[in-house]
């Protein structure tokens, strides 16, 4: 399943954020356990997130959120909509 297309023009997906750029979480289109897991790590709407680095092939991608660094796979990050900072 591909990530839902952002409804709003000013929204892009978390996977599209460049290394070193920051954004704010808008909404999550993830399901089930993964949705809960990611929210428990602090990826909730309104949270500031920064993309810190990408893996050797651009996947996985590491983000800092609430003072911690979390790596997500690209297709999971593509299901999180964000506002550019």
């Amino acid at each position: 399943m591909q990530g839902a297309k952002p409804k709003n023009k000013s929204q892009i997906t978390l996977s599209q954020i460049k290394e070193g750029s920051a954004c704010t979480i808008a909404e999550l289109h993830l399901e089930g356990l993964l949705r809960r897991r990611i929210m428990d790590l602090g990826f909730v709407p309104g949270t500031a997130v920064q993309c810190v680095r990408k893996g050797p092939t651009g996947d996985p991608i590491a983000y800092t959120v609430r003072g911690t660094t979390i790596a997500l796979r690209k297709e999971d990050a593509a299901k999180i909509n964000v506002f550019m900072a």
């Binding site: 993964l34 996985p60 590491a62 911690t68 660094t69 979390i70 790596a71 997500l72 796979r73 999971d76």
Partner: peptide
């Protein structure tokens, strides 16, 4: 299918 992976990179 490959499921998701959430990995913390602690300092």
């Amino acid at each position: 299918e490959a499921s998701s992976m959430v990995l913390e990179l602690p300092p």
